[in-house]
Design a protein around this nucleic acid. Structure first.
Lengths: 212, 212
DNA sequence: AAACGAATGTGCATGGTTTAACAAAAAAAG
DNA sequence: CTTTTTTTGTTAAACCATGCACATTCGTTT
């Protein structure tokens, strides 16, 4: 059952949530069918790429017709494990962290932030966006207890690595790292970096050196 | 002068800000020389990739020695146009937008958020993180007046496209889009998408289907 | 002065990603 | 019922990025 999934290219995997969300919109607006050309227009991905992406999962469409929105949707729902929710913790309730807590991921996603941690005792004990904030010293214990598998890291850069170091025995499998620190972690933990300053600077570089 | 720059692979261009920032750290801590192996350890990029990236700009290092930190730094400084500051505006002073305003980009970067806009009259007139907040109705006028070339878009998704539509004649060349909307814009505007929900979902997908 | 060690710059092979192009199939039109 | 139109799924080619491996060069040591 999972056999074929391993063969899906990473580039495709990254687009799946995009497809899924747009299909939900289509479905909500009552659309029954959709072509790869229409999807291409909406989400700015080449139509051939879309067709190839879908084809990794088998022949989901019909020639001369397109794709049935509802069928596609229920298919992706299974593929993206929409049925089971992944538990997430947030470490660092600063401005960025607070933004995440107010963001209601569960709406469109299979992920839910269940716990938050901060070093500031003003924040400890509060509940932000429905998520309780605990003291950061408790995070190892509580992550284990609550079977959390993903951490969103929005702490100041100078404490990032030391927190990552304590992540080893908590059962954490993935870190979404918003600090500029390039974390050193054990092999079994996957880290995705989102470096806001780098993103902005890269955009500026592209604007200047790759004029459209 | 810009002739060769066009040939730099996009993947390399995205790593340049990363290199630059780490070199600044090295320089600040008084380090004189550095090897590609050391850099590789620190920023988690293969050493051969680093050497190749640098080589696009010519022979910046010395065999048997490595790279002179100060020389590299002054070189990248020119390449990334660190001398001139790019003016940035932020549209949408919600949680995420506020996070940006408190983030002091100018420290490590050649970018500065100079104006912010919001529809909420409570926020208009305030100054957050030293940045004045104006009413969103004024953004076309003020962007033109202030010669802003980049916009960070942190508004609710349902207004994103209509704001993008008004961006045409403001002189904006780049948009850092944090909304899930895949914007349709004129050719001369470059859009980079950072889709937080997608990033989280992609991480979860990779964790489940590409175990390390 | 010669030998050694360190670390660059790059040729090359490999693998991943995108896109054009088209036969095949189904729907729609006549 | 036949023709035309639409649109998929896929073959093939081009493109891009990564990382090994090594000759080469420079600094250092003996």
């Amino acid at each position: 059952m999972d056999i074929d999934q391993t063969k899906i290219p990473q580039a495709t995997a990254k687009r799946l949530p995009l497809y899924y969300r747009y299909l939900k919109n289509l479905s909500a607006s009552g659309k029954q069918r959709v072509s790869s050309a229409e999807l291409s227009d909406a989400i700015k991905v080449d139509s051939a790429t879309i067709r190839r992406d879908f084809s990794y999962f088998g022949a989901l469409g019909k020639k001369g017709y397109g794709y049935n929105v509802h069928y596609l949707l229920s298919f992706f729902s299974k593929t993206l494990d929409q049925d089971e929710t992944t538990k997430v913790a947030l470490i660092g309730v600063g401005n960025l962290g607070t933004a995440f807590l107010h963001y209601n991921f569960i709406k469109n996603n299979n992920t839910k932030i269940e716990l938050a941690f901060d070093a500031d005792s003003e924040k400890v004990g509060q509940e932000i966006g429905g998520v309780p904030v605990y003291h950061i010293d408790e995070f190892q214990k509580r992550l284990k207890e609550n079977d959390v598998s993903v951490v969103i890291l929005t702490v100041p850069v100078h404490v990032a690595q030391s927190i990552a170091d304590q992540m080893d025995e908590t059962g954490i499998k993935g870190i979404l790292n918003f600090t500029p620190a390039r974390l050193t972690v054990p092999d079994h933990i996957r880290v995705h970096h989102i470096d806001l300053a780098v993103e902005l600077q890269a955009l500026v570089y592209f604007m200047k050196h790759y004029p459209v």
